[in-house]
Nucleic acid binder design. Structure first.
Length: 472
RNA sequence: GGCCCCAUCGUCUAGUGGUUAGGACGCCGGCCUCUCACGUCGGUAACCCGGGUUCGAAUCCCGGUGGGGUCGCCA
């Protein structure tokens, strides 16, 4: 009756960056925990002292924070738990489930090559299984004794029932010659010690699971449930990796993506809910669960992330949040230095969110409206600042100058009034005005442009534009 | 190569024996419109192949093909 509390974990190894595939695994685990009211554990698998650095660990924390994946327990560092693993390994040696092996890496490599050449399974041949006497000058490793016969069954929560013959498995190393534990051992010890109820990870760990199952059995431990999600592939259909580029989570932050958009896109890579595609975070927590996770590998669609998910989430985000983000982006790129409460920021967000797929595009769009100097686009000038525009611009300037206020409504009323008076379409006035104001024929709506520029600048530029038109 | 997994438009996917095979991104065209966008309407495009089972298969079974993963003192 009493179900144990759901406890899942994300257990990355510090490689120096957070990969999209890892990020999806973290997201799935986090959503699973939040959906089921369980606990989310962060564990750093830094047993390989060669590769692990403090900086690499910080990158993981930073990526997790940016994505909004808060953990309830940890972070636990495996590098701080070596004594525990050593003790556990000795337990297995004592019970006969594991043994010391004095074969050297060189010997093993040689045998592997030979086996491959003879088209045999290159697995460890088990020659130290019954050896008791040490080899002088060789520090032994501790190996796990895997059954030679029979088969191992895994009831995977995503992949379904998977069966592997035990003869495919070899006696894996638990403890290296230098006493450091290996992944396949620490993962079992920790998932047990930490009370993990479901191991939700990438399918690249599927074949490891069978070896790990035997370790659980040797300890007499009840294994957790397992769920292996199929991998994210690159456009070439190979496992997504560094060489595909654009694979680091924080790179997306720097390129102007919203974390909830990346989360949305990543979740949708393998999980779906009917025809629904855009999910705010609370909605994901409400809906996400294992039965709707598919088991076919998926190619990550970078274009759709930008065109759909990020664009949609930019439309959904609160104005204040985007204003803050836009302010940071402008400052970071050296485009403009605005105070966080500058009223122009909100105006810019209103005018630009529907025409920006990323914050970078939004900054691109904002930049001309904030520049002190007009950057003239020759084609736009040629097309819209012809001599007959001079009089129109002057009339508009006069009208605006006489207007009682300079709000967006008042400005629009002036434009409309002038157009009506002359029986002209609004475009006949707005386009020359746009070019006079910004130097370009493309921009947010003219009322937003004027509101951002402000009365004085608008009048000055309109009149300067008129002179340019008259001269041109 | 052994073992394991997978297979619906180019891509992400809906679909759980009977549908004109749906949605989304992309692409093409119309409408809207002060530009660009947004929005909207329409179009383009898929059930890998071959056998079964069945009155009937995208859906179930088998085989093939193709793709992926994995075979470390990496994780």
């Amino acid at each position: 009756m009493t179900q144990p509390k759901v406890r899942v974990r994300f257990a990355p190894s510090p490689t120096g960056y957070m990969h999209l595939g890892n990020a999806r695994t973290a997201i799935y685990n986090w959503l699973y925990a939040r959906h089921h009211g369980g606990s989310f554990v962060l564990r750093i698998e830094d047993t390989d002292r060669e590769r692990s650095t403090q900086g690499a660990v910080e990158v993981i924390y930073e990526a997790m924070r940016w994505l909004g994946l808060d953990w309830d327990e940890g972070p636990f560092l495996q590098s701080e738990r070596f004594e525990l693993y050593r003790r556990r390994a000795e337990e297995l040696v004592a019970s006969g489930a594991a043994y010391r092996c004095w074969c050297t890496p060189e010997e093993l490599e040689q045998r592997r090559q030979q086996a491959l050449a003879e088209k045999r399974n290159p697995k460890y041949d088990g020659r130290c299984r019954d050896r008791k006497e040490p080899r002088p000058g060789v520090e032994p490793v501790i190996r796990f004794r895997t059954p030679d016969t029979g088969e191992t069954v895994l009831e995977d929560r995503i992949q379904g029932r998977v069966v592997t013959p035990n003869e495919e498995l070899d006696d894996l190393v638990l403890l290296r010659a230098d006493g450091a534990p290996t992944y396949n051992f620490t993962v079992v010890v920790d998932d047990h010690e930490m009370g993990v109820t479901l191991v939700l990870r990438g399918a690249d760990h599927l074949s490891n699971t069978f070896r790990q199952l035997h370790i659980y059995r040797a300890f007499g431990w009840e294994p957790p449930a397992f769920a292996h999600q199929s991998l994210i592939l690159g456009p070439d259909r190979a496992k997504l990796s560094k060489r595909h580029g654009a694979v680091s989570v924080l790179q997306y932050r720097d390129e102007g993506y919203l974390p909830e958009a990346l989360v949305n896109a990543l979740v949708r890579c393998g999980w779906s809910h009917g025809d629904e595609e855009v999910f705010p975070l609370p909605r994901l927590i409400e809906l996400f669960d294992l039965p709707a996770v598919g088991n076919a590998p998926a190619i990550f669609d970078f274009e759709k992330l930008r065109n759909k998910y990020n664009a949609e989430h930019i439309k959904l985000a609160p104005r204040e949040r985007l204003a803050g983000l836009l302010c940071e982006t402008l400052a970071r790129r050296g485009d403009a230095n605005l105070q966080a409460d500058d009223p122009r920021l909100g105006l810019l967000v209103d005018g630009l969110r529907e025409r920006s797929r990323t914050l970078l595009e939004m900054a691109d769009g904002a930049k001309p409206l904030l520049a002190e100097e007009v950057a003239w686009d020759a084609a736009a000038v040629r097309k819209h600042l012809k001599s007959d525009a001079a009089e129109v611009l002057r009339a508009l300037a006069d009208r605006l100058e006489a207007a009682p206020s300079f709000g967006r409504e008042a400005v629009l009323a002036a434009l409309d009034g002038l157009a009506a008076e002359r029986g002209a379409k609004l475009g006949k006035i707005a386009q020359p005005a746009r070019v006079a104001l910004l130097g370009t024929a493309v921009s947010p709506p003219i009322d937003v442009v004027m509101a951002v520029l402000g009365r004085d600048r608008v009048l000055a530029r309109l009149r300067a534009g008129a002179e340019r038109a008259a001269a041109g």
